[in-house]
Design a protein around this nucleic acid. Structure first.
Lengths: 340, 340
DNA sequence: TTGTAGGCGTTATCAA
DNA sequence: TTGATAACGCCTACAA
């Protein structure tokens, strides 16, 4: 049996109420007794019972994150970085981090969100991989459950969020490619309902326009954000009548697949064909050739999201409800830049 | 306010006790009322309050996993696969999965384990990256908290576990390398307190012995399991007077770094120098060259661990308390094998 | 077959 | 400044 506040009360010949208030720092307890209470609590190894506290306070001190996994086996390092960021920041606050997995859009996903909110398992959510029109956003807003997100949906709901400057960084990357002599630039995107797909595609278009290059619809193709899909898509791109001389990918995973496909085809990457990624995962420094990519501070973003949500939960509406990060362009050999 | 069993009782003009028992399938309730209860519960969108249930039942229906992260930014895909495996299997049981991060051996780690057990946040733990002598194993055993682990420590405590046939698969891999003509085989290992380091090193030694090759201590070096560390270590290995013609790495991440270093040095991988990994992460198929590695079914292992722990928690001691997986050798170009 | 009541550990609202 | 007491929502032994 664990130590309860009752044990402490008995030992100190105090009422349980007094002990409780002493611990929580209420001002109506004498400093002396407070010290005694805190002291013996530590000695006895007291740890408050979560369930009892939650039941009474009507909150869970926990936040939820549901990994948007399409495939059962998925391995995008973006998510391990993101998750580790969520993990260490929640631990600081301190909250619990409840994690589950669900394929986006599936019924299982809805069930989890519904159950977690209604059973009060968590006080708020972190959303990821937001859709242009995202039912999670609408659902949580409607239920008045606090949440924050990476990226912003178009549902007309103003939630605290972190955003990445997808469009302008992508168009800047197009400019860079053109500067290095590439002209026929392809884009391997992801599912069209994703915000990142929309914004990065917009940036790609904008960049072409800025450079007075026509957009060839044959060069805009769709992957599912995995390496395998990047591999296949690239092979297809290279087999069209007038193939591209550069491939911009929506994320690093896709780009790794593209690199692999090009190596198979014997293409000299960085010279005959440029490849770019997005995310700046650690592995991008170790690919062959090292991948030019737009680096976003995943870990820091995760921290920020937790902080934003924590502020929401404490009803201390954060001053900054919208934080924008500008990706950093890492110029590497996959675009012919000399690796730094 | 959410729906409680009280609301249902009132609506149906039943007592809350009756409703409760109807839901839990007690035999002493008429089939008819049970149906009515279940029906209206669903209609009203009833979801049991976790905190209340936990408080009453004295268990959390949750399991904990604490990510053993040394570096704040870590990105080993092994862990995203592992975590996703834990996630979808816990969801089936159904348990909650509580996740946190802590550097192994640090005080923070001890605090988390202690707090989670004492506050009854979780009913049991999943352990990973087990040490030869692992305080977590001893602590949890002492506290009589159920736990399972990937790999087995030497603390003389018999917990349910999944094991990987590290030693014999490594020695088999040595044999394979020798068969392909490599003779001077190096091993890049990890921290010496890790079980996997110990077993894989043993396998390496055994393989050399089987092939009647002497072990050169200069060829056995230590990394910290990251790509960067694999990169540096490999450069060092290549600069010794009599460098190796094959490098076996303790895991894929390290091997990716090794590949990168060798490309930088202009070594022809698979011909002048073989490289092998361990884990079989998805990216190993896309590296240059594709990586020969020992593939372990990470996802399935995670499922199994959850199942083992679930059985423990239900006091249905699993028949199989020790499950051993044999890694599958994926022969690829990094060892000169023609990629399949 | 159903209703009643006590209690899980904590916190909050009263009195004292 | 402290003590008693009533919840929070659910489960379960016991009574009806």
């Amino acid at each position: 049996m664990s130590i309860t506040i009752r044990n402490i009360a008995k030992k100190l010949k105090l009422s349980i109420g007094a002990v409780s208030r002493a611990m929580d720092g209420y001002p109506d307890i004498s400093e002396e007794t407070r010290q005694r209470v805190i002291q013996t609590a530590k000695e006895m190894g007291y740890v408050p019972n979560r369930a009892a506290r939650q039941l009474r306070r009507q909150k869970a001190d926990a936040i939820g994150y549901i990994l948007p996994s399409d495939t059962p086996r998925f391995a995008d390092p973006f998510f391990s970085e993101f998750l580790s960021g969520l993990g260490d920041e929640t631990a600081l606050h301190p909250f619990d981090l409840l994690v589950s997995i669900a394929p986006p859009g599936a019924e299982a996903e809805q069930t989890i969100y519904r159950t977690w909110t209604q059973s009060r398992k968590v006080d708020g959510f972190i959303l990821d991989r937001i859709h242009l029109h995202d039912w999670r956003v609408r659902f949580l807003a409607e239920q008045a459950i606090p949440f924050v997100g990476l990226e912003h949906s178009l549902d007309g709901i103003d939630y605290p969020r972190v955003q990445v400057d997808n469009a302008s960084s992508m168009s800047g990357l197009v400019v860079h490619l053109v500067g290095r002599g590439f002209r026929r630039i392809a884009f391997i995107g992801g599912p069209e309902q994703l915000v990142i797909q929309n914004e990065r595609l917009t940036g790609y278009r904008q960049g072409l326009e800025d450079m007075h290059l026509a957009l060839d619809p044959d060069l805009v193709v769709t992957s599912d954000l995995t390496g395998t899909s990047g591999y296949q898509t690239t092979k297809r791109l290279c087999s069209i009548p007038d193939p591209p001389d550069a491939i911009m990918c929506i994320n690093d995973e896709t780009a790794f697949g593209a690199l692999h496909a090009l190596r198979d085809l014997g293409v000299q990457i960085g010279k005959d064909m440029a490849v770019t990624g997005f995310d700046g995962v650690a592995a991008s420094a170790h690919s062959d050739p090292p991948l030019t990519t737009l680096d976003i501070p995943v870990h820091e973003i995760a921290h920020k999201l937790v902080d934003l949500l924590a502020a929401e939960l404490k009803h201390q509406p954060a001053l900054e409800r919208r934080i924008v990060y500008a990706p950093r362009l890492l110029k590497r050999l996959s675009t012919g830049d000399s690796s730094s």
